[in-house]
Design a protein around this nucleic acid. Structure first.
Lengths: 190, 190
DNA sequence: CAATTAATTAACAAAACGTCAATTAAGTAA
DNA sequence: TTACTTAATTGACGTTTTGTTAATTAATTG
C-alpha cells in the first residue's frame, strides 16, 4: 500500500508535504473558520509557493484525507500487534490506544473535527471493543447490548476526552470506560 | 429572546428564509462536498437571487447557526416541561427526546454533521442525564462514574443512531441506553 | 560535473465573494 | 383603490480565490 522503504522519494517532496501538514495543523488550531481556510493562507504559513501546493494536492480536502490516513495508519500499526499477544490482559489494547492519542494530543485534537477521521476512528474502536468482547465471551457470558451500542458509546467518551484536552490519564479513562460496561460483562476481572 | 407573536414579520422575509433553509438541507443531503457549497448554488436551489441571500445572512455559516438554534430551541421546548412533571418516570424525558429526533430524521441527519449543533446537543443530553441521575440519587445510591462520562457515551450512542438512519425505535434505543448504565445505578426500576 | 526533477515566478481565465444603485414586485394601511 | 413602505430582482463593480500553465531557478543524485 504505502512506500515500504524501497523506492526513494525525493527529499524535497517529503519536506514540502511535511511543511503543508504542519501549516494545516497550525491553522486549524486557531479555529480558523474552516470555510475561510484558503490555499493562499496555507502556502503563506508553510512558507511555500501557492503553485507548489497544486503540485502535490488537488485541494485542501485531499491534504486532509492524506493526513487522516497517515495518523490513523500509525495508530493501527501501534495497537494491532497487541491483539495477538497477551490475550488474557483485555484492557491492554484500549490503554495503549489511549496512550498513543495522549502522546499526540494536539494532532488528535485538531483531527477529531474531521468527519472522515471520526469515521475511521470509530472503526478502530469497534475493532478494539469486539476483540475485548470475544475474549470475555470465551470466559463466560455474552453481553445483551449490541456491539454497535458499546462501540458508539466508547467512541463518544473518547471523542469527548480528546476535545476537552484529555483531562484524565489514559489508564484512568480506560478504568472509567470499563466501569461503565462492567455489568454487561458479568465477569470483569480485577 | 425571540419573536413572541407580537411584532409581525413581513411574510416575504419568512418565505425567503424558509426557502434558503430548505435549499440548504437539500444540498447537504447530497453530501455536497461541504467546502464546495457556494451561495450561488444555494440561491439556485432556493430559486432566489444571490443578492437576496446577502440581505439576510452574511455568509453560509450564519445561516447554519440560525438553523441550529431553531432546531434545538424547538427540541428544548418539547422536552423541558417533562423535567418537572412525572419525576418518578425517569425514562420519559429521554424517550420523548429520541422520539422528537425520530420524527425529524432528515433534519437531524444533516445537522449532526455541524460542530455547533453537536456541541449544543451534547449540552441537552447532559441535562437529561443529570436530571435522571439526581432523581435516582434521591432514591438510593450515586454512581461512581463522572457525569461527563455518562453524558458523552450517551451522546456517542445517539449520534451513531442518527447517522446510521435510526435503525432502532426510540423506545428500544432508550432501553439499550438504560441497560448500558444499569449497573452503575444499582437500583434501576423496571 | 551533468542530468533530472522539484520549486518558484508570473500570468491567465473562470468562479465566487461581497456590495451597491436602480428597478420591479409584494405587502400594508388609509 | 390608492398611496406608502419594504422586500426582491437585476446588472454591475472590484476583489479574492481557484486551478492551470510556461519559463526560470534551485536542489538532488549518479
Amino acid at each position: 500500500m504505502s512506500n515500504n522503504k524501497e523506492e526513494k522519494v525525493d527529499p524535497r517532496i517529503l519536506r514540502t508535504k511535511r511543511m503543508f501538514k504542519v501549516a494545516l495543523i497550525s491553522l486549524l488550531q486557531e479555529n480558523e473558520n474552516q470555510s475561510k481556510l484558503t490555499v493562499q493562507k496555507l502556502a503563506d504559513r508553510a512558507e511555500l509557493n501557492r503553485a507548489t501546493f497544486y503540485l502535490h494536492y488537488h485541494d485542501i480536502e485531499e491534504l486532509k484525507e492524506q493526513m487522516v490516513d497517515e495518523v490513523l495508519d500509525e495508530l493501527n500499526r501501534k495497537i494491532h500487534p497487541l491483539f495477538r499477544e497477551n490475550q488474557e490482559i483485555v484492557t491492554q489494547p484500549i490503554v495503549s490506544f489511549l496512550e498513543h492519542i495522549y502522546e499526540n494530543a494536539v494532532l488528535f485534537n485538531v483531527m477529531i473535527e474531521n468527519k472522515g477521521f471520526r469515521k475511521r476512528l470509530f472503526e478502530i474502536i469497534t475493532g478494539i471493543v469486539s476483540i475485548r468482547r470475544e475474549t470475555r465471551k470465551v470466559k463466560k457470558h455474552t453481553s445483551q447490548v449490541p456491539i454497535e451500542i458499546i462501540a458508539s458509546s466508547t467512541f463518544g467518551i473518547v471523542t469527548w476526552w480528546i476535545q476537552k484536552g484529555m483531562p484524565y490519564s489514559p489508564s484512568y479513562l480506560a478504568e472509567q470506560i470499563n466501569r461503565v460496561y462492567r455489568n454487561n460483562i458479568n465477569d470483569l476481572p480485577k
